[in-house]
Protein backbone atom coordinates (compact mmCIF):
# COMPACT_ATOMS: atom_id res chain seq x y z
CA UNK A 1 0.00 0.00 0.00
CA UNK A 2 2.71 2.46 1.01
CA UNK A 3 4.57 1.91 -2.25
CA UNK A 4 1.85 3.53 -4.28
CA UNK A 5 1.49 6.74 -2.32
CA UNK A 6 3.43 8.84 -4.83
CA UNK A 7 0.86 7.80 -7.39
CA UNK A 8 -1.91 8.97 -5.13
CA UNK A 9 -0.33 12.34 -4.75
CA UNK A 10 -0.02 12.50 -8.46
CA UNK A 11 -3.76 12.04 -8.80
CA UNK A 12 -4.52 14.59 -6.15
CA UNK A 13 -2.03 17.26 -7.03
CA UNK A 14 -1.29 17.35 -10.72
CA UNK A 15 -2.45 20.41 -12.54
CA UNK A 16 -1.59 19.66 -16.14
CA UNK A 17 -3.64 16.83 -17.61
CA UNK A 18 -2.12 14.83 -20.42
CA UNK A 19 -3.24 11.61 -21.91
CA UNK A 20 0.00 9.73 -22.36
CA UNK A 21 0.82 6.72 -20.27
CA UNK A 22 3.66 8.35 -18.34
CA UNK A 23 1.93 11.57 -17.50
CA UNK A 24 0.11 12.54 -14.33
CA UNK A 25 -3.56 11.83 -14.56
CA UNK A 26 -5.72 14.83 -13.74
CA UNK A 27 -5.79 18.48 -12.78
CA UNK A 28 -6.45 19.20 -9.13
CA UNK A 29 -9.41 21.29 -10.09
CA UNK A 30 -11.35 21.19 -13.24
CA UNK A 31 -11.04 24.11 -15.58
CA UNK A 32 -13.97 26.38 -15.07
CA UNK A 33 -16.77 25.68 -17.50
CA UNK A 34 -17.74 28.36 -19.96
CA UNK A 35 -19.53 31.09 -18.04
CA UNK A 36 -23.27 30.97 -18.63
CA UNK A 37 -23.45 34.64 -19.45
CA UNK A 38 -22.18 35.84 -22.77
CA UNK A 39 -19.02 37.82 -22.07
CA UNK A 40 -19.62 39.90 -25.17
CA UNK A 41 -17.69 40.27 -28.37
CA UNK A 42 -13.96 39.89 -28.21
CA UNK A 43 -13.21 43.57 -28.42
CA UNK A 44 -9.74 44.83 -27.74
CA UNK A 45 -9.23 45.85 -24.16
CA UNK A 46 -10.62 49.31 -23.41
CA UNK A 47 -8.08 52.01 -22.70
CA UNK A 48 -6.86 52.28 -19.17
CA UNK A 49 -8.84 55.11 -17.51
CA UNK A 50 -5.66 56.30 -15.84
CA UNK A 51 -4.22 57.09 -19.29
CA UNK A 52 -6.98 59.61 -19.84
CA UNK A 53 -5.46 63.06 -19.18
CA UNK A 54 -8.81 64.34 -17.93
CA UNK A 55 -8.75 61.90 -15.04
CA UNK A 56 -7.03 62.93 -11.83
CA UNK A 57 -5.12 59.87 -10.78
CA UNK A 58 -4.94 61.12 -7.24
CA UNK A 59 -8.70 61.17 -6.82
CA UNK A 60 -10.88 58.83 -8.79
CA UNK A 61 -13.91 59.47 -6.59
CA UNK A 62 -16.04 56.97 -4.76
CA UNK A 63 -17.50 53.82 -6.19
CA UNK A 64 -19.38 50.88 -4.80
CA UNK A 65 -16.89 48.04 -4.90
CA UNK A 66 -19.44 45.42 -3.88
CA UNK A 67 -20.67 43.10 -6.57
CA UNK A 68 -24.01 43.29 -8.31
CA UNK A 69 -26.53 40.54 -7.52
CA UNK A 70 -25.84 38.69 -10.76
CA UNK A 71 -22.09 38.71 -10.05
CA UNK A 72 -22.40 37.30 -6.54
CA UNK A 73 -21.55 33.64 -6.24
CA UNK A 74 -20.60 30.99 -3.75
CA UNK A 75 -16.95 30.36 -2.99
CA UNK A 76 -15.58 26.87 -3.32
CA UNK A 77 -15.15 25.84 0.30
CA UNK A 78 -13.03 23.24 1.98
CA UNK A 79 -14.90 20.73 4.10
CA UNK A 80 -14.65 21.25 7.82
CA UNK A 81 -13.07 18.50 9.86
CA UNK A 82 -16.53 17.42 10.99
CA UNK A 83 -17.78 17.28 7.40
CA UNK A 84 -14.76 15.34 6.18
CA UNK A 85 -15.09 12.87 9.01
CA UNK A 86 -18.82 12.42 8.43
CA UNK A 87 -18.38 12.10 4.68
CA UNK A 88 -15.76 9.36 4.93
CA UNK A 89 -17.96 7.45 7.34
CA UNK A 90 -21.13 7.94 5.30
CA UNK A 91 -19.61 6.96 1.98
CA UNK A 92 -17.80 3.93 3.36
CA UNK A 93 -20.93 2.64 5.03
CA UNK A 94 -19.87 3.35 8.60
CA UNK A 95 -16.09 3.05 8.83
CA UNK A 96 -14.72 5.43 11.44
CA UNK A 97 -11.11 6.60 11.59
CA UNK A 98 -10.67 5.86 15.25
CA UNK A 99 -8.71 4.16 17.91
CA UNK A 100 -11.27 2.67 20.27
CA UNK A 101 -14.03 5.09 21.14
CA UNK A 102 -12.07 8.23 20.27
CA UNK A 103 -11.77 9.33 16.65
CA UNK A 104 -8.45 10.60 15.41
CA UNK A 105 -10.28 13.62 14.02
CA UNK A 106 -11.19 14.55 17.58
CA UNK A 107 -7.71 13.78 18.89
CA UNK A 108 -6.12 16.07 16.32
CA UNK A 109 -8.80 18.76 16.47
CA UNK A 110 -6.51 21.44 17.86
CA UNK A 111 -3.78 20.64 15.34
CA UNK A 112 -6.33 20.83 12.54
CA UNK A 113 -7.55 24.23 13.73
CA UNK A 114 -10.99 23.18 14.91
CA UNK A 115 -12.55 26.01 16.89
CA UNK A 116 -12.74 25.61 20.66
CA UNK A 117 -14.22 29.13 21.01
CA UNK A 118 -11.64 29.98 23.65
CA UNK A 119 -8.33 30.22 21.83
CA UNK A 120 -9.60 29.38 18.32
CA UNK A 121 -12.79 31.23 17.46
CA UNK A 122 -13.38 29.89 13.94
CA UNK A 123 -12.61 26.63 12.20
CA UNK A 124 -9.53 26.85 10.01
CA UNK A 125 -10.79 25.86 6.55
CA UNK A 126 -7.57 26.44 4.63
CA UNK A 127 -6.63 23.49 2.43
CA UNK A 128 -3.29 23.39 4.21
CA UNK A 129 -0.75 20.63 4.35
CA UNK A 130 -1.83 19.58 7.84
CA UNK A 131 -5.36 18.89 6.66
CA UNK A 132 -4.00 17.06 3.61
CA UNK A 133 -1.80 14.88 5.78
CA UNK A 134 -4.56 13.82 8.16
CA UNK A 135 -7.03 13.35 5.32
CA UNK A 136 -4.52 11.08 3.67
CA UNK A 137 -4.19 9.06 6.88
CA UNK A 138 -7.96 8.85 7.25
CA UNK A 139 -8.39 7.86 3.61
CA UNK A 140 -5.81 5.09 3.91
CA UNK A 141 -7.51 3.74 7.03
CA UNK A 142 -10.97 3.96 5.51
CA UNK A 143 -10.08 2.56 2.11
CA UNK A 144 -8.15 -0.39 3.50
CA UNK A 145 -11.27 -1.54 5.32
CA UNK A 146 -13.92 -0.36 2.92
CA UNK A 147 -12.61 -1.91 -0.28
CA UNK A 148 -11.80 -5.23 1.37
CA UNK A 149 -15.15 -5.53 3.11
CA UNK A 150 -17.19 -4.18 0.22
CA UNK A 151 -15.77 -6.85 -2.03
CA UNK A 152 -17.57 -9.41 0.10
CA UNK A 153 -20.96 -7.72 0.01
CA UNK A 154 -23.81 -8.61 -2.27
CA UNK A 155 -25.16 -5.06 -2.22
CA UNK A 156 -21.76 -3.49 -2.70
CA UNK A 157 -21.29 0.25 -2.60
CA UNK A 158 -17.69 0.65 -3.72
CA UNK A 159 -18.05 -2.06 -6.36
CA UNK A 160 -21.41 -0.86 -7.59
CA UNK A 161 -20.49 -1.11 -11.29
CA UNK A 162 -17.89 -3.85 -11.44
CA UNK A 163 -16.99 -7.12 -9.84
CA UNK A 164 -14.11 -6.74 -7.37
CA UNK A 165 -11.85 -8.98 -9.40
CA UNK A 166 -12.75 -7.51 -12.79
CA UNK A 167 -9.79 -5.88 -14.48
CA UNK A 168 -11.06 -5.38 -18.02
CA UNK A 169 -11.04 -1.73 -19.12
CA UNK A 170 -14.81 -1.49 -19.56
CA UNK A 171 -15.58 -2.72 -16.05
CA UNK A 172 -12.86 -0.62 -14.48
CA UNK A 173 -14.04 2.50 -16.29
CA UNK A 174 -17.65 1.85 -15.34
CA UNK A 175 -16.72 1.56 -11.68
CA UNK A 176 -14.52 4.66 -11.83
CA UNK A 177 -17.44 6.65 -13.26
CA UNK A 178 -19.68 5.37 -10.48
CA UNK A 179 -17.09 6.27 -7.82
CA UNK A 180 -16.67 9.69 -9.37
CA UNK A 181 -20.38 10.34 -8.84
CA UNK A 182 -20.49 8.78 -5.39
CA UNK A 183 -17.37 10.34 -3.87
CA UNK A 184 -16.95 13.58 -5.82
CA UNK A 185 -20.58 14.20 -6.65
CA UNK A 186 -19.69 14.83 -10.30
CA UNK A 187 -20.57 13.11 -13.52
CA UNK A 188 -17.81 12.49 -16.00
CA UNK A 189 -17.46 11.13 -19.50
CA UNK A 190 -15.44 7.99 -20.10
CA UNK A 191 -12.69 9.99 -21.75
CA UNK A 192 -12.56 12.68 -19.09
CA UNK A 193 -8.91 13.26 -18.09
CA UNK A 194 -9.68 12.54 -14.47
CA UNK A 195 -11.04 9.11 -15.36
CA UNK A 196 -7.97 8.48 -17.49
CA UNK A 197 -5.85 9.36 -14.50
CA UNK A 198 -7.59 7.00 -12.11
CA UNK A 199 -7.51 4.24 -14.73
CA UNK A 200 -3.77 4.78 -15.01
CA UNK A 201 -3.39 4.47 -11.25
CA UNK A 202 -5.43 1.28 -11.23
CA UNK A 203 -3.43 -0.27 -14.06
CA UNK A 204 -0.09 0.66 -12.56
CA UNK A 205 -0.82 -0.79 -9.15
CA UNK A 206 -2.37 -3.86 -10.70
CA UNK A 207 0.74 -4.45 -12.80
CA UNK A 208 2.96 -4.20 -9.75
CA UNK A 209 0.83 -6.11 -7.27
CA UNK A 210 -1.32 -8.36 -9.41
CA UNK A 211 -4.00 -7.67 -6.83
CA UNK A 212 -7.19 -5.89 -7.96
CA UNK A 213 -8.15 -5.12 -4.36
CA UNK A 214 -4.83 -3.34 -3.81
CA UNK A 215 -5.38 -1.43 -7.03
CA UNK A 216 -8.89 -0.39 -6.05
CA UNK A 217 -7.71 0.58 -2.56
CA UNK A 218 -5.18 2.90 -4.14
CA UNK A 219 -7.83 4.39 -6.38
CA UNK A 220 -10.08 4.83 -3.35
CA UNK A 221 -7.41 6.83 -1.52
CA UNK A 222 -6.91 8.88 -4.66
CA UNK A 223 -10.59 9.77 -4.77
CA UNK A 224 -10.69 10.84 -1.13
CA UNK A 225 -7.55 12.96 -1.30
CA UNK A 226 -8.63 14.78 -4.45
CA UNK A 227 -9.89 18.36 -3.98
CA UNK A 228 -13.17 17.39 -5.64
CA UNK A 229 -13.87 15.30 -2.55
CA UNK A 230 -12.87 17.73 0.18
CA UNK A 231 -14.09 20.93 -1.46
CA UNK A 232 -17.56 21.87 -2.55
Amino acid sequence: MKRVLPLLLAVACTTEPEKTSNTPPEPATEPDPVPPVDPGPADPLPPDPLDDPSVDSESLGDADARPAPEATHRAIKRMSVAQASAALTELSGGIVWANGSSTYWASYAATLGVADYQTILEDNLDPNIMFQKFLDDAANHTCDQWVASDAELEDARFFSAAEPDATDPASVTANLLALRILIHGRESAEDDPIIDGYREVFDTVLRRSDDPIAAWTTVCVGFFTHPHFFTY
Binding site: D32, V34, P35, V37, P39, G40, A71, I181, E187, Y232
Partner: peptide
Protein backbone atom coordinates in the same frame (compact mmCIF):
# COMPACT_ATOMS: atom_id res chain seq x y z
CA UNK B 1 -9.19 38.43 -19.21
CA UNK B 2 -12.26 40.28 -20.39
CA UNK B 3 -11.33 43.84 -19.70
CA UNK B 4 -13.84 45.58 -17.48
CA UNK B 5 -16.60 43.09 -18.09
CA UNK B 6 -17.73 41.25 -14.99
CA UNK B 7 -16.84 37.64 -14.55
CA UNK B 8 -19.71 35.32 -13.80
CA UNK B 9 -18.91 32.15 -11.94
CA UNK B 10 -20.15 28.99 -13.60
CA UNK B 11 -23.45 27.52 -12.63
CA UNK B 12 -22.91 24.17 -10.99
CA UNK B 13 -24.63 20.97 -12.06
CA UNK B 14 -27.69 19.84 -10.11
CA UNK B 15 -25.62 17.10 -8.49
CA UNK B 16 -22.85 19.48 -7.43
Amino acid sequence: ASGLKPYFAPERSPLE
